[in-house]
Design a protein around this nucleic acid. Structure first.
Length: 743
DNA sequence: GTGGGATCGGTC
DNA sequence: ACCGATCCCACC
């Protein structure tokens, strides 16, 4: 009886996004399971594919599988279900979702030729005695191996241990006292770091309650838990104790952290508690390292995985808990296909596998907090910092007043004084500026008025080419006004101050201070990130200037001042999440100070100091912020009150792009008209904010509506129709479901 | 994506 | 009628 199996081939193409049926040759008939990676004939080529199910003989002649790759299966039945959900929800090919789950690149076990004793310990000891006088080096080497039988070293490394060369080793091998053996080795990404064993802290009374609730969640309904805890309230300790519980119950845990927090210190914290059971998965690992960690998870050697976004796919079979630290972080959304959000995938995976999701943050995303308030997630809170440390006082400086008083510096008098004092006392300051490369906005320096789109109430973006203002949601355009439309002042300013300019200015104003800058430009080289941080920690640097990079997680006891050069940069981004981002950022930055025994202080400069995102950050008051922001989202029907899909069309030929995007817009509009529904809105077509990327022009259409399923359906039908009408196969269409940014 | 067969149009 | 370029489409 022939056995047939269904395989999805590794070609990201619409036409082949379905299973193909292959016959198993006799020799493999009982060796193939779902999740195996196989090599199959496809057309006149050989192609890799993944087994997704049993097949049956059809009305075509099935070809035979060529080979099955080792180390399979690469995914379980449940993970296949999850991949199907991702493909369906995020509109991507099944094979793309599957490939996100499996280790990529060359899948090989690394081997090395190690040197081991050829005789028993007892015999070897006798040999040592006999060698002592005539060949002392050989004797020394041999006794080293007797004393350290666990060492699995290659010839040169072993020779180094006793200050000799590998010829000593080969002499011993020739005499039959030692032998070479090929052993597989693990590529350990953290081999060079030592971990100090740590014990659980005794929890604060607040932490105790929270931990109890989590344990109840683990045993009970496993409804996702939102842990809202102020910065410095000890969320990590809560995670550690929850994980401990899960491990004791014989299950496994995944800890997702934002890429930027995945530092050796973070890993050390987990390894310190759980030792060798901890594994790490992230994009910086070499493909070999990633494969080894992946295999150790599968083999059950690892019980806790800590990693970035993709670690949500760790191949555990008895998953009990997924922790999502800093739940609101936008790095959890994958930027390329499949454009999944790790938080959503985690919730779905946990549901399928009976695990609990625990997401923690000081500043929940609006989406998640809304769900928590709706009862879809369980909300628990940590309101106090550990050791009773207070949250630092926050001072908001109105930069309009500074200008009126004749201060044209980028530092207010207050921040200037603050820096002076810090330098006097030998303490440290962090100066934060969130300057995004291309986005600038136009603002009146006298009254703070920002030029906004009349249709969207979003800030207009300055386009240098045409020297005009433009809304990238609806394409509304206007000229840059010569005088402020609000107060008729002539002080119209194009904002675009970057960290470099701040550095220059600090050096001018405080020539004796040691200033360093940390942003994408200064940390591009490997290790430079750690180097800057360790210099700051050791006190070699007085003032650290930086972008978001310095806002996260770091714990510097001597930092007593945090300055935000302008809170407006992120606030005036043309994005409905600008207010949310600003609040999150300010809250996080503020959390960087007052973590030691000294009191900290935060100074935020702004031209729009009355904005609720800034005002509520001053009081560290998330709930008030949430109420204001959710009202705005409700009024404007933005998420969480609607869903969105961003469709970007790109091609080298701009005319082609415009033609296709316009046509797609027409098709979408007529479809929505047919549906006789007011529910779906179409924004665009407009030129994408990143209008040209790698010589390709980009235009986009945004769909917005209550029902994500309907949005997807309309989008799908429209894209099929577009292809029929235009018949163009070479234009690129990229679909982003629940986009976090429209760029 | 890619090769092969169908299709179209130009050329001897 | 024959041949190369282009289109189309199936690939199990």
């Amino acid at each position: 009886m022939d056995r047939y199996i269904n395989v999805v081939v590794d070609l990201p193409l619409k036409n082949v996004d379905k299973p193909f049926t292959y016959k198993l040759p006799q020799r493999l008939s009982d060796k193939v399971v779902i999740g195996d990676k196989v090599l199959v004939p496809f057309g006149n080529r050989r192609i890799e594919g993944y087994v997704v199910g049993e097949g049956k003989k059809g009305d075509f002649e099935a070809k035979e599988i060529i080979k099955v790759f080792p180390f399979g299966p690469y995914f379980s039945k449940k993970m296949l279900d999850l991949a199907r959900w991702i493909s369906d929800y995020y509109q991507c090919y099944l094979v793309s979702s599957l490939k996100a789950m499996v280790p990529s690149g060359k899948v090989k076990v690394k081997k090395k030729r190690v040197v081991v004793l050829a005789q028993s310990i007892k015999e070897s000891k006798e040999i040592v005695e006999s060698l002592k006088s005539r060949a002392p080096k050989q004797a020394k080497l041999l006794s080293y191996l007797i004393d350290n039988p666990e060492d699995r070293l290659i010839s040169t490394k072993l020779a180094q241990k006793v200050n000799t060369t590998s010829s000593t080793v080969s002499a011993l091998v020739n005499k039959g006292f030692l032998e070479y053996r090929n052993e597989s080795v693990r590529r350990d990404p953290f081999a060079h770091i030592s971990f100090k064993k740590t014990e659980a802290f005794s929890p604060t009374s607040e932490q105790k309650i929270v931990i109890k609730e989590i344990i109840e969640g683990l045993k009970g309904d496993r409804k996702p838990i939102m842990l809202k805890g102020v910065t410095g309230s000890g969320k990590t300790e809560v995670y550690l104790q929850a994980i401990d519980r899960v491990l004791r119950g014989g299950r496994e845990a995944i800890v997702l952290v934002p890429e930027i927090s995945l530092t050796p210190q973070t890993v050390a914290r987990f390894k310190g508690r759980f030792g060798e059971k901890v594994g790490v998965l992230h994009s910086q690992l070499s493909s070999g390292e990633r494969f080894d960690e992946w295999r150790r998870i599968k083999e059950g050697k690892i019980k806790v995985v800590i990693g970035a976004r993709s670690a949500v796919f760790a191949p555990f079979n008895n998953l009990g808990l997924i922790v999502i630290d800093e739940e609101h972080e936008s790095t959890y959304k994958q930027e390329d296909h499949p454009k999944y959000h790790a938080r959503e995938v985690a919730v779905m995976r946990a549901k399928k596998e009976g695990a609990l999701v625990l997401m923690g943050t000081a500043t929940p995303s609006l989406e998640s907090y809304h769900r928590a308030k709706d009862g879809k997630y369980k909300l628990i809170e940590l309101t106090k910092r550990v050791k009773g440390r207070p949250l630092p006082p926050v001072e908001i400086v109105d930069m309009r007043e500074e200008l009126k008083e004749g201060n044209k510096l980028m530092f207010s008098r207050s921040l200037y004084r603050g820096i002076e004092q810090v330098l006097d006392k030998g303490e440290q300051a962090m100066i934060f500026l969130n300057r995004r490369g291309f986005s600038t906005f136009v603002q009146c320096r006298e009254c703070g008025h920002v030029m906004k789109c009349i249709n969207c109430d979003l800030s207009l973006k300055y386009h240098a080419q045409e020297r005009g203002l433009r809304c990238h949601y609806c394409d509304y355009q206007e000229k840059v006004p010569r005088i402020c439309p609000e107060c008729e002042s002539l002080y119209i300013k194009y904002f675009g101050v970057g960290t470099q300019k701040v550095e220059e200015s600090l050096n001018e104003e405080f020539p004796t201070a040691k200033v360093a800058r940390m942003d994408v430009d200064t940390t591009r080289r490997k290790g430079s990130y750690e180097r800057i941080l360790s210099k700051f920690k050791s006190g070699e640097i007085d003032i650290l200037i930086g972008t978001q990079m310095i806002a996260k997680g770091h714990d510097f006891a001597n930092v007593t001042l945090v300055g935000v050069v302008t809170a407006d940069t992120s606030l005036n981004l043309p994005d409905f999440r600008a207010g949310e981002r600003t609040f999150q950022l300010l809250t996080q930055v503020a959390g960087r100070t007052g973590r030691g025994d000294k009191l900290g202080k935060v100074i935020i400069q702004s031209y729009t100091p009355d904005h609720y995102s800034i005002q509520f950050a001053k009081d560290h008051n998330y709930d008030n912020f949430y109420e204001a922001e959710i009202a705005f989202r409700n009024a404007t029907a933005y998420p969480p009150f609607s869903s969105m899909i961003n469709i970007v069309i790109s091609h080298k030929d701009e005319a082609k792009v415009i033609k296709n995007t316009n046509k797609l817009g027409e098709i979408l509009r007529s479809k929505i008209l047919e549906m006789d529904s007011e529910e779906i809105m179409i924004l665009g077509p407009v030129q994408a904010p990143l209008a040209k990327v790698r010589r390709e022009f980009r235009w986009q259409i945004i769909l917005k509506g209550k029902d994500i399923g309907r949005l997807r359906d309309v989008n799908n039908e429209a894209l099929i129709e577009l292809k029929e009408i235009m018949g163009e196969s070479d234009i690129k269409v990229s679909v982003d479901v629940d986009p976090l940014t429209m760029l």
